[in-house]
Amino acid sequence: MQIPALSQTPLFPEITVNGAVIPSAAIAAEAQNHTAPKGKPGLAWRMAARALTIRKLLLEDAARRGIVATPMAVGPGLMETPDEAQIRALLEQAIAVTPPTEAELEAIWAKDPARFRSPPLWEASHILCAADPFDADATEGARLRAEAIHAQVTRDPKSFGKIARDASDCSSKANGGMLGQLVPGDAVPEFEAVLRDLAPGEMAATPVRTRFGWHVIRLDSRAETRELPFSAVRARLAEAAEKAGWTRAARDFTADLMKAADIRGVDLDIHQGQAG
């Protein structure tokens, strides 16, 4: 009895864009750059196929326009590829975004002024008992030392500065443990979480562990957030509005290229994903 040959149809086929083949291997490689829910590899493949299709169409359009571009630096020691440079030059030429008017910007701000607030500002002090987070014995020793310091400062709050100068493992010891003014992002999350809950002059109820070790933390003063006037946020609003406008224009531009293209091997939804 003859055994039927197994189908050789690939799970993810090649696609063609205006007659040019995008190999399934290239799509599979690109799919590694796209996340999809577990058990749905087809979604990552679809996203990869769409990204490579758009790239192909943008390069074709750049060639039709005769665009020549020189790669630019995009970071320390990093340069654009020739294709990336050509796509950038194409989008710079093809997409023009009208800057938002003053009235439009003010309307965005006036819709919900409470969204635009200054960050909180903290003045804090700490005493650090440093420890390697991967050394269990050192971490335990630092915890015990921090608890002893915490108990000592609790008995005599005025001794905080002196103990910091004598015992802290942070360079702030020279200032009695004072860290100066802090805003969100200046300290590690565990440290900031404590500052958010303390009242001015209050010390954390227990030492706090971070990747640096154990901290005895005191909040010295706090400036609360406040609503910012339009003048203070205008530049930020203008930048965000122009970026949003450029994103919409780029999406529409690539959607038009896809509508006009002969794409075979996959059904791509032109209303999803991002340009470039």
Rank of each mutant, 00 (worst) to 15 (best):
Q2H: 06
Q8D: 01
F12C: 10
F12V: 04
V17G: 09
A20G: 10
P23Q: 00
P23R: 04
I27D: 10
A28Q: 14
L43G: 11
L43P: 09
R46G: 14
A48C: 11
A49G: 15
R50M: 15
L52S: 10
L59Y: 08
A63I: 04
A63V: 01
R65P: 08
A69D: 08
G75W: 05
M79Q: 07
T81A: 12
P82S: 04
L91D: 00
P100N: 11
T101L: 02
A103I: 00
I108L: 13
A110M: 11
S125C: 09
C129R: 06
C129L: 07
F134W: 13
A138N: 00
H150A: 15
V153E: 03
F160N: 09
D169L: 10
A174W: 01
G176H: 04
V183L: 02
D186Q: 00
V188R: 03
P189C: 01
M203G: 12
A205K: 07
T210A: 02
S221G: 13
S221M: 05
A223H: 14
S231C: 04
A238T: 11
E239G: 06
E242L: 14
T247G: 15
D252Q: 07
F253N: 01
T254E: 08
M258T: 06
I263N: 00
D267I: 08
H271C: 00
